[in-house]
Each structure stands twice: as structure tokens, then as C-alpha cells.
Design a protein around this nucleic acid. Structure first.
Length: 431
RNA sequence: UCCCGCGUAGCUCAGUCGGUAGAGCAGCGGACUGUUAAUCCGUUUGUCGCAGGUUCGAGUCCUGCCGCGGGAGCCA
């Protein structure tokens, strides 16, 4: 009696006859013995055929298998030290379910342009599969982390009016006879929801129409944005380091095989535990200048500055309380130094750059209005947002964590385009 | 938008001083009873990104355009 089993669970079926369905990853023939490596999404296993043990029809079909043909194999499971994974299938029968001729991606080096044009097929590779499994784990860990701490998930709109962090970088879409924009953050809606539900988070895609061409940018990316009533900036940072440490810990706990397959230095990730180092912006500038940076007080950190900081510390590092003019209008003025605002960026180590931007929000109506006007933003677009300060204003803070940047760091991928199934980038909308 | 680089076979690339194109892999045919991107023998494959210019002659030099990559800015 044949048992249909996933490759991952084959160890429990040694000695039994099983039927497996999947795709041909590689084939090797060797005279009167032939091998096929089968992938079914749960793992890979080697099937072996001996010419003398099967009929000539099975032998002929097996020998003619091509890359990515979908097949059904029937055979017995046995332990085999020489086989990848430790088990193999002694094949008795083979059915071809879907032929595959001239599969474009070969088991060899390819360039990024070719691979991205074939992203729909590239995803089948072991390496890309490992990255997707880590992404899956990180996304599940995000949801678990917040659920376990009493946060309510709030889904904020993707189609929005002009409300956002500023005018630049918005994708415009027709909205009947009006214009709408794809959301570049859910934060302002998150603030409204925090007044209703206390601690909330949003988790979804976000869109930036920036003509960025770097390894750290996508035009569509996933962001998790918690917003907490009664949290000040320090509470905010404590939550951030807990979250990031939890995500890394979950990846280490449940995706160790994938991380090892990707060649990740596990020992670097094992050091990611709270607390993370904290640097006041002014101290960061001084430190960067010592390390050769041209940065001057008043400007945001550049990408090279983030790389320098990421190489000094083994853990992610907070840079806190930036000058007002470098940051968004909604950040709260720092009582200890009114030139600055209560905010933080979290810089990942090993050159992976900023993975979190967060702040305490300005809860004073008059100061908030003044900041909107200072930055030349249209006050009328923020009417409902200002209501949050008119009706029971409250101390609150929040942040945004970029999922792709986090996964790139955890998996050690140099470019975030490999951490999302179908990356949307400048000039790249297909597949 | 700006700066830098690349564009030659299905893929990855070489091509010298300007003299009309080559390798490996893949594919195809064959050999092989334990392979791990097997190995070995044989073999097919070209709008040299596009357009123009210089030249007796351009893959090679010049100009423009297109595509892609990397970086800057913006940020997650």
C-alpha cells in the first residue's frame, strides 16, 4: 500500500513504499544506474533507478528526465549515507505529469538581470527557497510577538488621500474622478487606532515612488508599524530591541538549516540580545568624524555613516534625537534640547543599514501645527490627524521596521531584492 | 535626477596594436553500476544592444540613444 508523503517526513517511512510528487531538480545517469533529485516544496530527495530492477519503459523515461519536469515517483524509502539528506528512494515506477523542455535556469552562475527576468522560476532554487522560508518565519514571529504582548493588529488603508510624511515619493492613482495615492506609511492611521485600542500595529505593503537604485531600496516593501499609547521614546526603544532580538532568535531557532545553507555566520546573530547600544545624535556625529566621515551637525546620516556605525558595534545600534530639520514634522520636540526631536534610527551591523525608524509623536496641538507650517505642508490635509490632539491628546510613540531589510540582514543577503518573492524596483515591474 | 561601470552563442565570459568571432557550461549523439553542479569522447549554436560617424577595413575608435548593474540623494 503506497503512502503519499512529503519529502520532509520521509525519515518516518523507512522501509515503506511511498508515492511522491514534485519537480526534477537535477539528474545524473551513470551507465546502468540513474539518479534524480526531486523537490516537492518540503525538501529534496534523491531517487535511484537500477536498470535491471525496472522495466525498459521506466528506465527509458527516467533517463530522459529534464530539469523541472513534474513527476510522480513510487518506490521504497531507505537510509543511505551517500544521499543528500540521508534517505533515498529506490524507484520502482515513474509517471511524467508535466514535461519541461529547455528550462532557462541552469545549475550554474547567472547574472542579476537574467535571474530577475526569470524570478518566477528563480524562486524554485534552493537558495531562494531558503530565503523565503526565513521571511515566512520572520513574518510569523512579528505577528506572534505583538499578539503575545496584547497588541491589536489594525489594517490601515493602501489607497489614501495626500496624507503622509510629505509630498515626495507618492504613487498617484486614478480614484474615480479624483486622485488617490498609495500609502507610504500607515503611521498616522496607527496613531488614531492607538487612541482607540491602546497598543496596535499595522503590517502590510507600503509604496515609495522614489527613483532609488541601491541594494537597500524597493518601490514596494513590507513594513510593520507599532503605535503605543503612553509610551515615551525610551519605552519605544526598549520595545524595538526586544522585537529585533525576538525575530533573530526565532530565525535561529526554527531556520538554522536555511541560515547555514545560505552561509550565514550564525555566531554574529547569536550576539543580538537586549540592550542595544544607544548613541545621542551629537555623539554619533563626533564618533563618525573620528572615523573619517565628513558629516556635520544638522544633517541626516548618510549611507557610508551607517556602514561605519554598523562596523563599530556587533549589535544593532540606536542613534537618538536627531536635529529637527533632518526629521519629519510629527516627531516630538526634545525638552532637553529643543534643537532636536525625540526619535531613533536602528542601524543593523555588518553594513545592512537602517532597519527601523521611530519616534515619540508630537502631542501638543500648537507645536504640531507650527511644525506642519514650518515644513510648508498643507495644513488642511491634516485636519483629522490634528483632531487626535484636540480630543484627549496623549503621549505616544511608534516605529516602522522594514521586513525586507531585516530579512536581508538575518539571511546575510547583500541585496533586498532577494528577500521578497517578486521585487518591485525602478524600471522592474515584471514578472 | 546625478556619478561610475557593463552590453559578444541559450547562460557565464575572453577577444591583444583596428584586419569579418572564441572558450566553458547548457543542448544534441555516444560510453560508464553510487552519482552529489559526476566524468570522458564527438557535435550544433552569432542582428558583437540600436543608429550614425571616422577608416581601404570597426566587436575594437568617436557621437547619440536604449537596456542593465553599482553608488549618491530619499528613506524601511
Amino acid at each position: 500500500m503506497a503512502v503519499v508523503s512529503g519529502i520532509r517526513d520521509l525519515g518516518a517511512h523507512v522501509g515503506e513504499t511511498v508515492t511522491l510528487r514534485g519537480w526534477v531538480q537535477t539528474t545524473r545517469t551513470h551507465g546502468k544506474v540513474a539518479f534524480v533529485v526531486l523537490r516537492d516544496g518540503t525538501g529534496i530527495v534523491q531517487g535511484v533507478v537500477l536498470q535491471k530492477e525496472v522495466g525498459p519503459d521506466v528506465w527509458e523515461r527516467f533517463g530522459a528526465l529534464t530539469l523541472e519536469t513534474s513527476i510522480e515517483l513510487r518506490g521504497t524509502v531507505r537510509e543511505e549515507r551517500r544521499a543528500p539528506g540521508g534517505y533515498e528512494i529506490g524507484v520502482q515506477d515513474l509517471r511524467i505529469l508535466g514535461p519541461s523542455h529547455d528550462y532557462p535556469i541552469q545549475p550554474k552562475e547567472h547574472g542579476p538581470d537574467f535571474l530577475l527576468d526569470h524570478r518566477h522560476l528563480w524562486l524554485r532554487s534552493s537558495q531562494q527557497r531558503a530565503i523565503m522560508l526565513v521571511r515566512n518565519e520572520v513574518e510569523k514571529a512579528i505577528v506572534d510577538f505583538f499578539y503575545d504582548r496584547g497588541f491589536v493588529r489594525v489594517d490601515t488603508p493602501i489607497l489614501t488621500g495626500a496624507v503622509g510624511e510629505g509630498g515626495a515619493g507618492l504613487f498617484e492613482v486614478d480614484y474615480f474622478d479624483d486622485k488617490a495615492y498609495l500609502a507610504q506609511t500607515g503611521q498616522l492611521y496607527g496613531e488614531a487606532a492607538a487612541a482607540a485600542l491602546g497598543k496596535i500595529y499595522t503590517f502590510g505593503p507600503t509604496f515609495r515612488a522614489e527613483k532609488s537604485k541601491t541594494r537597500r531600496h524597493l518601490t514596494e516593501f513590507w513594513m510593520v508599524e507599532p503605535e503605543m499609547a503612553w509610551y515615551d521614546s525610551n519605552d519605544n526603544m526598549r520595545l524595538q530591541e526586544e522585537l529585533v532580538s525576538y525575530l533573530v532568535g526565532r530565525a535561529l531557532e526554527r531556520c538554522k538549516n536555511e541560515l547555514e545553507y545560505l552561509g550565514r555566520d550564525i555566531s554574529r546573530l547569536e550576539k543580538v540580545t537586549p540592550p542595544f547600544p544607544r548613541l545621542e545624535y551629537g555623539d554619533a556625529v563626533a564618533l563618525l568624524q573620528q572615523h573619517g566621515s565628513e558629516i556635520q551637525w544638522g544633517t541626516d546620516l548618510g549611507a557610508p555613516d551607517e556602514t561605519i556605525l554598523g562596523s563599530i558595534y556587533e549589535k544593532p545600534v540606536f542613534v537618538m534625537n536627531y536635529p529637527k530639520q533632518a526629521k519629519a514634522f510629527y516627531m516630538k520636540e526634545n525638552p532637553a534640547d529643543p534643537r532636536t526631536v525625540l526619535c531613533d534610527d536602528l542601524i543593523a551591523p555588518e553594513g545592512f543599514g537602517e532597519i527601523i525608524g521611530g519616534s515619540q509623536r508630537e502631542d501638543d496641538l500648537d507645536r504640531l501645527v507650527a511644525r506642519i507650517q514650518e515644513q510648508g505642508l498643507p495644513l488642511e490635509a491634516y485636519g483629522w490627524y490634528l483632531d487626535l490632539r484636540r480630543y484627549g491628546t496623549f503621549v505616544h510613540s511608534g516605529f516602522g521596521l522594514g521586513v525586507e531589510r531585516t530579512v536581508a540582514w538575518i539571511t546575510g543577503r547583500p541585496h533586498i531584492r532577494e528577500t521578497i518573492p517578486f521585487p518591485r524596483m525602478l524600471y522592474r515591474l515584471y514578472p
